[in-house]
Computed example of a mutant assay.
Amino acid sequence: MLEISPAKVVHIIYQSREGNMGERELHAFIQGLNEDEQAHLVALAWVGRGVYEAGDFADAVETAFNERAAPTDQYLMGMPHLAENLEAGLEAMGFDVAEVEDDFLRDH
């Protein structure tokens, strides 16, 4: 089960696409997530990159907890194609990204 709301993931996707203007806010947003949310976010990115399959999500989360070496915000923001990886990860986990994005944009 996903321990981070899809809306928070879409917020990160949106901010990462903003480039330098959203970089400081994105670092702060990711830092403000709790440890469970951060691990699930990393696991989602890995699923989106194809490192793990959606069916192995629990293993990805466990690995994210156990192998954390750098702050999550720095690790993720150093990842090429972060927004695309998170989008693909959400889709692989069965979420309708377009619907979540519509809800996010309507609220912002």
Rank of each mutant, 00 (worst) to 15 (best):
L2C: 05
P6C: 05
K8P: 04
V9L: 04
V9T: 02
V10N: 02
V10M: 04
H11Y: 06
H11F: 00
I13T: 03
I13V: 15
Y14F: 12
Y14P: 01
Y14S: 03
Q15K: 01
S16K: 03
E18P: 10
E18M: 13
G19L: 03
G19A: 04
N20M: 10
N20F: 10
N20K: 10
M21T: 10
E23I: 09
E23H: 09
R24M: 08
R24I: 10
L26Q: 01
L26T: 01
L26W: 00
L26Y: 02
H27E: 06
H27C: 09
A28I: 06
A28H: 06
F29E: 02
F29L: 09
F29M: 05
I30W: 00
Q31C: 08
Q31E: 10
Q31T: 08
L33E: 06
N34D: 14
E35I: 08
E35F: 09
D36V: 12
D36A: 15
D36Y: 14
D36R: 15
E37M: 05
Q38W: 03
A39D: 01
A39K: 02
H40P: 07
L41M: 08
V42Y: 04
V42P: 06
A43G: 02
A43N: 01
L44G: 00
L44A: 03
L44Q: 03
W46R: 02
V47F: 00
R49D: 04
R49P: 05
G50I: 14
V51R: 13
Y52A: 01
E53M: 10
E53V: 07
G55I: 13
D56Y: 07
D56Q: 07
D56H: 04
D56N: 13
F57A: 00
A58S: 11
A58Y: 14
A58E: 15
A58N: 09
D59W: 14
V61A: 08
T63S: 09
F65V: 15
F65I: 15
N66F: 10
N66T: 14
R68E: 14
R68S: 14
A69T: 15
A69G: 11
A70K: 14
T72Y: 01
T72S: 02
T72I: 07
Q74N: 12
Q74Y: 13
Q74K: 15
L76C: 04
L76K: 00
M77F: 04
G78I: 09
M79K: 11
P80D: 07
P80L: 04
H81Y: 11
H81A: 10
A83G: 14
E84P: 05
E84S: 09
L86S: 02
A88Y: 05
A88Q: 03
A88V: 07
G89D: 00
E91R: 10
A92C: 07
A92V: 04
A92D: 02
M93I: 04
M93Q: 05
M93H: 05
M93Y: 06
G94F: 03
G94C: 07
F95K: 05
F95E: 02
D96W: 11
D96E: 14
D96N: 13
D96G: 10
D96S: 12
V97A: 06
E99S: 06
E99K: 10
V100I: 15
D102Y: 12
D102E: 15
D102I: 14
F104L: 06
L105G: 06
R106A: 10
D107P: 08
D107F: 12
